[in-house]
Nucleic acid binder design. Structure first.
Length: 840
RNA sequence: GCCGGAGUGGCGGAAUGGCAAACGCAGCGGAUUCAAAAUCCGCCGUCCUUACAGACUUGAGGGUUCGAGUCCCUCCUCCGGUACCA
């Protein structure tokens, strides 16, 4: 009987559900394994094959771990706040909750149809009031620590999404979500003091097993740089000291003697006070111009330096020289102290500025090897100091140390560390998010909503439209906004900003541990049982956003004693993007695969026969190259989908979906099924012809699963099956094969298990073990090289002596031919591998 | 510019410093079939050759080594991140 995936797959899915097979259990005598997928935003377009790739990987790993006797936790949930549902509500008036619920139902149906072994009894939904309650509770813990604060700061405002964004949500001056150019806007905001954790967020990256690229991105984002703060006192025109001082941050304190002017950012608070009356007008005009530039313009027009002189002078702390103070937008208000000492001889930006405005350039560092510095450019490398008073003649690293000590002794500065990381702008002026649980009271200020009154629920609104003036739609609901102050009982107003979508995902991995607990976010006992996450799988696009925010919250919770590990995610892997072929005609129009006929590597339009341009690109609606998992499941079945997802290539690399190559996986599973179905104990080989191959295959698959090398594990199973098809399988071969295949193709696994007369589910069987002695051959074929070129081979016993191997190797006719007339200088025997004969 | 990753047959891709191209796709030949599909068997990097034998080949160029796709140096191309961060 042919294998009918349309019947078999739903049958086993129903049986798994009925027996609650995927429910999490915990037995203290066994090791635990927590495998986590980044939970999806339940979008209207449903699951795509990219989701399936990551989910399949964790599913295979957890099934394998479970067969190895681990306690396994493998949950799933929904990151369900977010703009798409809200924007849809604006257009249609349909409540985001309704849209979201529908999308979730569809996602669940799709996930179940692929046979993923999630424990749905722990499902979480970030928009569920029972979940929001604890998100708000964590916010209040942050608030109590002084880690959440209000401030009026210039923020990134997306005019299209009509909300403020965090620095992390802006990419190249554009809104990461919609691509609109962001504007700077001064607004009252809630911020989280993530900068207080900068050092630990950086240091503790040493504790995790994450992809190098992601670690690098986090390090870059945190942007630690060591340097010094130097204090420049303001002086009047005659050089008499004034009362104000400017702190400048520099990573090159060794160039302090070369500082010939100073630059403040246009927003620097001191500008107002130090600008002389004559310069006031120019300075104000420049400030206004800088303010009106978008971030994009400010960086785009970077080639040409601009600035204005304030009329003020400051005194260089080491040589007392009088340096003019300028403002320029190449100095950022948000980095370091917002002020720099300019050393045009040794900083390219300062050099350009000095050249443009005719400011002096003074050389204080020379290349150590004595070569002349390149003309027309600043010399920015390390070297040896000249014209530098107390650090004259010192190489750069020592000069840095000595000048810092000098500054410190004079109380004019000190060694310090600066970070690029900024505090996290945490409020959004939108409806569909967690309300920030704060009440504003005229007498008591910002007052937290008492924990017993959480959650603060979202009110029903008529219109979802953001006001665009910096207030959320909530601000218009007087009945909701107006409340009592929890402290004094007087009139109070609720905070109308909501939290960003990242809030819910900052701690969902903890809620899974104790998803139904209504007295606490989670209990300490289960936290200790399951934390940390052993394997976290998701897209690389969250390398800085979600992964940095979640680590931050986790560390705060760690400091408060709510979690027991310093890091939440021990091992992290990103699935590679699944690409797809797209087909374009001569007019540049895209055609979907159904309209295309493939012949070899070429593609033709069925209707006209026109040859089409084939390219490999990201899946996108506009290119009509999306692959819908529903279609794949319908045509080939979930097992084939899962197997192909893993067989395409290395898990972490991008790889193209080839609609033809999936056939190979379908064929493989058919062969497995036929072996099982046609098995006849009476006709099976009497001896055990595949003993060694079987043990080798177990070893290979087990080792590959450990490295998440799914593609080579599948290749090893294919080799095994090819052998079994050719030479006949024993019952032992089939039991082993089915166990190995099971995690990859669980429906076929259970069907075959049952067909072989075994009881229970495959998931309850033991993972096969191997005997190391049986994974090597007794007789091996060694290649013989002469001067590194293969000239023949010999078959010898694995443990043959070196002398024996050498004797046989030299006797091989073709080898002898190549040695003839030459002296054998050396014979290298690598046991079990190769023989190399070096001749002269 | 800086940081990270990757360049291997027609294609997707394998290779603890030890026989490059496992496994799969496509292609070619054969068996089965009235025929086709499905299935099974075989071939399949390039050049030379009837064959044996050989030469060449992992983005380019150097180096280390008995031996390099793998290690080191220089460079090129593609992808991702980031960018006036002092």
């Amino acid at each position: 009987m042919p294998y009918e995936h349309r019947i078999v797959e739903p049958k086993w899915q129903a049986r798994w559900r009925a027996s609650r097979l995927h429910r999490t259990t915990f037995d203290a005598k066994r090791p635990k394994y927590y495998a986590l997928d980044m939970f999806p935003y339940p979008s209207g377009s449903g699951l795509h094959v990219g989701h399936c790739e990551g989910y399949t990987a964790t599913d295979i790993i957890t099934r394998w771990k479970r067969m190895q006797g681990f306690n396994v936790l493998h949950p799933m949930g929904w990151d369900a706040f977010g703009l798409p549902a809200e924007n849809y509500a604006i257009r249609t008036g349909i409540h985001p909750r309704i849209t979201t619920e529908k999308a979730i139902a569809n996602f669940r149906r799709q996930i179940d149809s692929v046979g993923f072994a999630y424990d749905w009894e722990r499902e979480v939904n970030t928009t569920d009031p029972a979940y929001v309650k604890w998100t708000q509770w964590i916010f209040l813990q942050l608030w109590k620590q002084g880690l959440a604060y209000e401030g009026t700061v210039p923020i990134n405002w997306c005019p299209s999404c009509k909300t403020g964004l965090a620095n992390e949500e802006v990419s190249q001056g554009k809104c990461e979500r919609c691509g609109a150019a962001v504007e700077r806007k001064d607004m009252r905001q809630w911020l989280l003091r993530i900068t207080r954790y900068a050092e630990r967020l950086l240091e503790d990256l040493a504790l995790v097993d994450w992809p190098e690229s992601t670690l690098a991105m986090q390090r870059n984002w945190i942007g630690r740089s060591e340097g010094a703060e130097a204090v420049f006192r303001l002086v009047d025109r005659e050089g008499w000291p004034g009362t104000e001082e400017i702190k400048a941050f520099t990573t090159r304190p060794d160039t302090l003697y070369g500082a010939t002017y100073m630059v403040l950012s246009p927003e620097h608070p001191l500008v107002e006070r130090i600008t002389t009356p004559e310069q006031r007008e120019v300075v104000r005009a420049y400030q206004a111009a800088a303010r009106n530039k978008s971030d994009l313009e400010r960086t785009d027009l970077a080639k040409e330096k601009t600035g204005a002189f304030t009329g003020a002078y400051a005194q260089n702390p080491v040589n007392g020289e009088k340096t003019p103070v300028w403002i320029a937008d190449y100095v950022l208000a948000t980095y370091g102290t917002g002020a720099i000492m300019a050393v045009p001889a040794h900083d390219q930006r300062d050099y350009e500025f000095a050249t443009k405005f005719g400011l002096p350039i003074k050389e204080v560092v020379r290349p150590a090897d004595g070569r002349p510095p390149e003309p027309g450019k600043a010399f920015c490398d390390d070297g040896v100091n000249v014209n530098s008073g107390v650090i004259d003649g010192l190489p750069t690293p020592e000069a840095k140390k000595k000048i810092c000590a000098f500054l410190e002794s004079k109380n004019l500065g000190r060694a310090t560390v600066s970070y690029r990381l900024r505090d996290w702008v945490f409020s959004r002026q939108r409806y569909w998010g967690e309300p920030i649980p704060i009440v504003h009271c005229r007498n008591c200020g910002a007052v937290p909503v008492p924990e017993a009154e959480l959650p603060v629920r979202l009110p029903e609104v008529e219109r979802y439209e953001p006001t665009g003036t910096g207030e959320s739609p909530l601000a218009g609901i007087a009945a909701w906004v107006e409340t009592r102050c929890p402290t004094c009982g007087g009139p109070g107003r609720r905070e109308t900003n909501t939290m960003p979508q990242w809030a819910g995902s900052c701690w969902y991995y903890l809620r899974y541990l104790d998803a139904k607990n209504d007295r606490a976010a989670w209990s300490p006992e289960v936290e200790k049982q399951w934390q940390p996450v052993d394997l976290y799988v998701g897209g690389a696009e969250h390398a800085v956003l979600h992964l940095l925010y979640a680590r931050f919250w986790h560390k705060v919770l760690f400091d408060l004693g709510h979690v027991s590990t310093p890091e939440p995610f021990k091992k992290l892997r990103h699935q590679g993007t699944v690409l797809a072929f797209s087909y374009q005609d001569g007019m540049g129009r895209y055609h979907e695969p159904g309209e295309v006929e493939l012949r070899g590597d070429d593609a033709f339009l069925k209707a006209t026969g026109e040859k089409l341009k084939v390219s490999v690109e990201k899946m996108a609606k506009s290119m009509l190259n999306g692959i819908n998992p529903d279609d794949v499941v319908a045509q080939y079945g979930a097992d084939v989908l899962r197997l192909y997802e893993m067989f395409m290539g290395e898990f972490e690399l991008p790889k193209p979906w080839d609609p033809r190559a999936i056939e190979g996986c379908a064929r493989f599973l058919k062969r497995v099924w036929r072996l099982v179905e046609e098995f006849d104990a009476a006709k099976a080989p009497a001896e055990d012809p595949h003993l060694r191959l079987r043990h080798k295959t177990i070893k290979k698959v087990t080792g590959d699963l450990d490295r998440m090398a799914f593609n080579t594990a599948i290749a090893a199973m294919m080799e095994y099956v090819n052998e079994l098809v050719g030479k006949g399988a024993t019952r032992e071969d089939l039991l082993t094969l089915v166990k190995l295949v099971g995690p990859f193709a669980p429906h076929l696994g259970d069907e075959a298990w049952e067909k072989l007369g075994e009881k229970g589910f495959l998931l309850q069987a033991d993972w096969p073990t191997f005997d190391a002695a049986l994974t090597v051959d007794a007789v091996v074929r060694l290649a013989i090289q002469v001067d590194g070129k293969v000239r023949g081979s010999v078959k010898v016993a694995r443990d043959a002596s070196e002398d024996e191997v050498r004797k046989q190797a030299l006797a091989v006719p073709n080898v002898a031919k190549h040695i003839e007339g030459k002296t054998v200088r050396k014979v290298i025997v690598v046991p079990g591998r190769i023989v190399n004969i070096v001749v002269g």
